[in-house]
Design a binder for these strands. Structure first.
Lengths: 229, 229
DNA sequence: TGACTTCGTGTGAAAATTACACATTACTTC
DNA sequence: GAAGTAATGTGTAATTTTCACACGAAGTCA
């Protein structure tokens, strides 16, 4: 079935920058394109927005179709609309970024994508279209966000140690943080709940496990919050 | 001439939230719609994106066509894409916000818009489509931005007094600020250049006029800046 | 039981933020 | 031209926040 309009229309897509945290380093999920253009190149997961779904829905749907991931933290980033970003025709892309917990890193490639793989953000292959620009923009946004909103937990498993949280901040922000000052600061927000359990691993003192309080977290996210590290 | 596609496509528009500062209060520029739907309702200036122009270009073009404003500070805000935001058909709108200096407030309504008018943000009429939501989002972004980036100058004339700048901050942020602390802080960024001139008005001591240093300003905007008040 | 490794904690110095009051300058009016 | 009026312009002390920094505790392994 054909669809006809008075004026030419741009195609509308969504693209997702999915971040994960593993091996003590920030990772991003890329797919190898199975179809032209840029066949066999690495690219951000994404695809065309259907006319009866919202942008957020499209992002979640494409993400699940191409990578198997669902129910993750997802936020709109920016809309990329230069004229020649796609060689085929005019395509405007609404970019999203997403944060996943390590448990979700089971990525079954499917449908459009020939393959899905995690890459450390410090070592990304050349990307299709203007995806390198989108990725850079997402990384910069994540860095900014981390310094004033408590989104770091979205990248950690439900139970985590303060050291894991600190490593996350250090590796995303690219700085070293003093352990005592970090703990003082984080705990002062009264957002972390110490568990009865401990994390024991290796020949040394076990670490206290924490989870974060989802109620206080939501409250913080809504009002002006403040989670400066 | 008709244009035909395999799948149905959303129409793509831009909408602009234009802020001005006048009468000691933050103002927003609205147009009265000359055509259906929402004929005679107030709305944000905006219109359809042409297939051969970027999103930014479309925003600037529509702004000039509908309000006569050009060369203003303009930044993409967010893309609104719920399914039924336009009663005619699926329309996705990329929202922008803009800041104007008072000198530019000469608004000649034209083309699509029957009338253009400034409204204090505290007293906005009902808006067409989901424009109230877009406006709220823009205002919230402006507030956020003002507290950590030196964009306030974009809303003031080229020469201004520190009191004017303070009033701007107070009225946008909705807080009272201590005069001495404000001046100390603002001047410490070394961004303001005192002029030889003074601003004299009324039966009292005249005020020192300042302009801001565009070079330092650009430098601040690019790197992590920091303009906390 | 001693070596090793990571966890967990407190204090003092420096810097930033906040609170706060009065003399100065020009215009107006008497 | 003297007195009144109104907004400008300036400094300091108290408080809070940030930053720098070192060592005992708890567990494993040999």
């Amino acid at each position: 079935m054909k669809h006809t309009y008075e004026y030419p229309r741009a195609a509308l897509t969504v693209d997702c920058v999915v971040f994960g945290f593993d091996d003590g380093a920030l990772q991003v999920l890329l797919i190898r394109r199975g179809i032209a253009p840029f066949k066999d190149h690495w690219a951000l997961p994404g695809g065309f927005v259907r006319v009866e779904e919202t942008l957020d829905d499209a992002a979640r749907r494409e993400l699940e179709e191409e990578t198997g991931l669902k129910d993750l933290f997802l936020e709109q980033l920016y809309t990329f609309g230069t004229v020649n970003r796609d060689p085929r025709e005019r395509v405007v892309s609404v970019a999203y970024y997403a944060l996943t917990k390590p448990a979700d890193h089971t990525t079954a490639a499917s449908t459009d994508a020939a393959e899905a793989r995690w890459f450390p953000v410090s070592d990304i292959p050349p990307l299709a279209f203007d995806h390198a620009e989108i990725f850079a923009s997402a990384l910069s946004r994540l860095r900014g966000k981390l310094t004033y909103q408590p989104v770091g937990f979205e990248l950690l498993p439900p139970k985590f140690t303060l050291t894991q949280l600190q490593r996350l901040y250090e590796s995303v922000l690219g700085t070293e943080i003093d352990k005592r000052n970090f703990r003082k600061k984080v705990l002062s927000y009264d957002l972390l709940i110490p568990l009865k359990e401990q994390h024991r691993e290796g020949p040394h003192r076990p670490a206290q496990l924490f989870r974060f309080d989802p109620v206080k977290y939501e409250r913080l996210k809504k009002k002006g919050f403040l989670f400066e590290i």
